[in-house]
Nucleic acid binder design. Structure first.
Length: 300
DNA sequence: CGTCATGATTCTAA
DNA sequence: TTAGAATCATGACG
């Protein structure tokens, strides 16, 4: 009885001939999928969780307390979110793959079981598996797409926040100006000094670097504009930075610059020029010691 | 609003 | 890598 039924089914099947229709219905998404994959790879979302600690350390240049600069603060936030996205992405991906596998084996078993009472060609099994896989890969692509979107919005937010500018505190500008005008002949603070200034001003080292970069160029460009400021700070000099917490030195332009206690000279223009001459006379080994800046400084 | 000051970024050259 | 220069973009101020 059973064999007879089986053969009848075979016959019917041959007649209906629901041959293998085109599987090539999904050739289009390939390019898109590739694009998404490339982007995820480029964005570091893909495969490995390799945390490039080396790059961060190199950029921060020995700032042990973490968050090397303001930008770094936002950047670390960015990285944290990116890592979160990556985590979600991978867990979802894994989930899908597992589900796909389970479903495939389930269907395969089902077909195998059915093959005892109805004819099931191996191609059909393969086709079923193929269909399942394509369905799941479609889902995966959706996941990749949304991941890409998330990364993009995250990135654009970072870009937007990048140029946010907040004026420094009075304290910070005070500290920076003090150093600048006290070292007018060579306003290139070392890394250690930068860190110190950053600490005193409550800003970051890179902000200090930015400030000195801007200050040098702008001072050089229009020295007349800075005369007043210069006189304030040069007159006051480094009076004493030993004021501990709040060196809110009042620049009331004292005619008698009390110097001596801290071993610092009040750097007037004349003395500054002298120093410059000295630097020019005996060029120090420090690179960029007495170049353009010194010459310009001389003209002051 | 327009304008200037100013912190941050980008580009180039050494 | 860094400094210098140009430029961008925001904040303060009138």
């Amino acid at each position: 009885m059973k064999p007879a039924l089986f053969s009848v089914l075979c016959e019917i099947k041959e007649k209906t001939a629901l041959s293998i229709r085109g599987i090539a219905e999904e050739g289009l998404p390939d390019a898109r999928l590739m694009r998404l994959d490339n982007m995820l790879l480029a964005e570091g979302v893909s495969r490995p969780e390799k945390r490039g600690r080396g790059a961060a350390a190199a950029a921060g240049t020995a700032t042990p307390g973490g968050c090397p600069n303001g930008n770094g603060l936002e950047h670390s936030d960015y990285r944290a979110k990116l890592s979160q996205i990556r985590q979600i992405y991978h867990s979802e991906l894994e989930k899908y793959e597992q589900a796909c596998h389970e479903f495939t084996t389930h269907v395969t078993n089902l077909l195998r079981e059915q093959s005892r009472i109805r004819p099931v060609l191996p191609e059909e099994m393969e086709r079923m598996v193929g269909i399942i896989h394509s369905k799941f890969s479609a889902i995966q692509m959706q996941l990749k797409q949304s991941t890409c979107e998330a990364v993009m919005t995250l990135r654009s937010r970072l870009l937007d926040a990048r140029r946010k500018r907040r004026n420094f505190s009075k304290q910070a500008t005070e500290v920076l100006n003090e150093y600048f005008y006290s070292h007018l002949s060579n306003p290139y603070p070392s890394e250690e000094v930068k860190q110190e200034l950053a600490r005193k001003g409550g800003i970051t080292v890179s902000q200090v670097s930015n400030w000195f970069g801007n200050k040098r160029i702008r001072y050089k460009k229009n020295m007349g504009k800075f005369q007043e400021e210069a006189s304030i700070y040069t007159a006051n000099t480094v009076a004493d930075t030993t004021e501990g917490g709040g060196p809110r030195s009042q620049p009331s332009c004292p005619s008698t610059p009390s110097f001596g206690s801290s071993g610092h000279f009040p750097l007037t223009s004349a003395r500054d020029a002298l120093l410059t001459l000295q630097t020019l006379a005996s060029p120090r080994p420090t690179p960029g010691g007495g170049s353009l800046w010194s010459q310009v400084s001389l003209r002051a």
